[in-house]
């Protein structure tokens, strides 16, 4: 286990040390009746051991699609067009299903959006966790060892270990989600993907689980990809943040930096459309219009129909990802104008 500095004060990592997970130019589309839904488009990011990355964006911008792609659990109609997903340097996309299965849960585990239904209703919760342990932990632990492990995990996430012998319907919503987290931890994964893990829960439980996740991540030191449409939540738990819009990562950088100096108009508007919980009170900026239909996304910069700075160039040409400060990159032709938004009455 390594010691992890507190997320908020983490210095930008050294770029040269090998990343745990590198997503490179990932492009994925869904084939549907009327054409292709461009759900993930040229997405690149890197995740280092012990790091926590937040993926944020409006609903429907492709966050879940990215997450599913990492585990190669994409829908049947999904097609990878380009790119690589490298885990410890090994590209996952060309692997066979059988090879891929050895990585699932062992290396990358997942906490799903729909906590309520993520458990098989007719199997005891313990049996479902045991299934993962027996599959992935080598050498295979004895029944007693596995039991001990599960009990420890339940204690860690704050659920009574007796509940291992119960069925999912006997758990409350929050308990179910905690148990899922326990299951996600059960095989010591290097990365946990948490896709809107608290969205379906009530606010108090949300906070508790969030705090717990934060604590556990610090304690055990695995990397985490935290997905949410709620930027306030992301701010609390991540060191690095990637803002997605219409299937693309439009802004990525250290959380502190992005919050302080958003350089993409969308990032800016997204930040200012949510009430701040940490910073001073500010006026909410309106984010006008609807996210685009990804069946035929806008030409050029995908944000241009909603962008206050859009010019002819934005309509025609897609902007490159430019590094605007160390570790902070933006996909925008007009990133330098964004700071002026505050003065122009957008906030």
């Amino acid at each position: 286990m390594q010691t992890i500095p507190s997320p908020a004060g983490a210095p930008p990592r050294d770029r040269t040390d090998a990343a745990l997970l590198e997503v490179d130019n990932l492009t994925m589309e869904y084939e549907v009746d009327g054409g292709n839904v461009s759900a993930v488009s040229n997405v690149s990011f890197a995740l280092h051991a012990g790091e926590s990355l937040g993926l944020v964006g409006e609903s429907g911008c492709g966050k879940t699609s990215v997450a599913m792609s990492l585990l190669r659990l994409q829908a049947d109609n999904a097609r990878f067009r380009e790119g690589e997903i490298r885990l410890n340097g090994e590209d996952l996309l060309p692997l066979s299903e059988a090879e891929m299965r050895t990585h699932r849960w062992k290396d990358i585990s997942m906490v799903f959006q729909g906590a309520m239904n993520a458990w098989n209703p007719v199997q005891r919760v313990g049996a479902q966790i045991l299934e993962a342990i027996n599959l992935h932990i080598k050498p295979r632990p004895t029944a007693a060892e596995a039991r001990k492990r599960m009990e420890d995990l339940f204690n860690l996430v704050g659920v009574d270990p007796k509940m291992l012998d119960r069925y999912p319907h006997e758990f409350s919503g929050g308990m179910r989600q905690r148990a899922i987290i326990a299951m996600a931890l059960s095989c010591d994964p290097q990365i946990i993907i948490a896709d809107e893990p608290t969205t379906a829960l009530d606010v108090i439980v949300q906070d508790q689980i969030l705090a717990q996740l934060l604590r556990i991540q610090k304690e055990l030191g695995m990397a985490i990809i935290y997905i949410s449409h709620d930027i306030a939540v992301i701010a609390e738990v991540t060191q690095k943040i990637a803002v997605m819009y219409a299937g693309r990562i439009v802004e990525i950088g250290p959380t502190e930096e992005v919050f302080a100096n958003p350089r993409h108009p969308y990032g800016y508007l997204l930040l200012h459309s949510a009430p701040s919980i940490t910073g001073p009170r500010r006026r909410l900026a309106p984010l006008k219009g609807e996210p685009p239909n990804l069946l035929n996304p806008p030409t050029g910069c995908r944000f241009h129909p909603r962008c206050p700075f859009a010019t002819e160039k934005c309509v025609v040409e897609s902007p490159p990802l430019q590094e605007v400060s160390p570790g902070h990159s933006v996909e925008c032709w007009h990133w330098d104008k964004v700071p002026s938004m505050a003065e122009e009455g957008h906030a």
Partner: peptide
Amino acid sequence: REDFILTARAKGLSE
């Protein structure tokens, strides 16, 4: 189509 099938797949269980 149920979510728990997705969980099972994510766990790396065989088909």
